[in-house]
Design a protein around this nucleic acid. Structure first.
Length: 118
DNA sequence: TCCTTGACGGAGA
DNA sequence: ATCTCCGCCAAGG
């Protein structure tokens, strides 16, 4: 299906996955958001696991900044040392977020949506 | 239908 | 700080 970046369609009529894509697309570069926060901002509180499922279904060449979504503790949800793990880690470090002791500081880098808009 | 499987989260211990 | 356990919820067998 065609997904236009700048559309702000009627949330009621969007599928859950579309709502989730919309939210992830808005995560600013240099910030991260937990699966739970993405779900909440998408109007789907409690759907943290579903956010993970949605990301798993993304095509490899997606433009969506999936790497900015991490666990609530700031850890990467892939098995340590795997290619995916290393890829996500480097993409975020490239955006200036330090990875210390196996995690990113949510306190400092988690997206504060309220300060940005709405 | 029922059961299992996760890119989850948080309350306890 | 860690680790386990359990509730969550859609998908896929």
């Amino acid at each position: 299906m065609i997904y236009k970046i700048n559309d702000q369609p009627n949330m009621e009529k969007m599928s859950h996955k579309e709502k989730i894509w919309q939210v992830i697309h808005k995560i600013p570069k240099g910030n991260v958001a937990s699966y739970g926060l993405v779900a909440k901002l998408a109007g789907l509180p409690g759907y943290a696991r579903y956010v993970g499922y949605t990301l798993k279904c993304l095509p490899v060449q997606t433009k969506l900044p999936w790497h900015r979504v991490v666990s609530a503790k700031g850890a990467i949800s892939f098995e340590q040392g795997t290619k995916k793990y290393i890829r996500q880690k480097s993409l975020l470090e490239k955006e200036g977020i330090p990875f210390l002791k196996g995690k990113f500081s949510m306190k400092q880098y988690e997206w504060k949506q309220s300060l940005e808009e709405s």
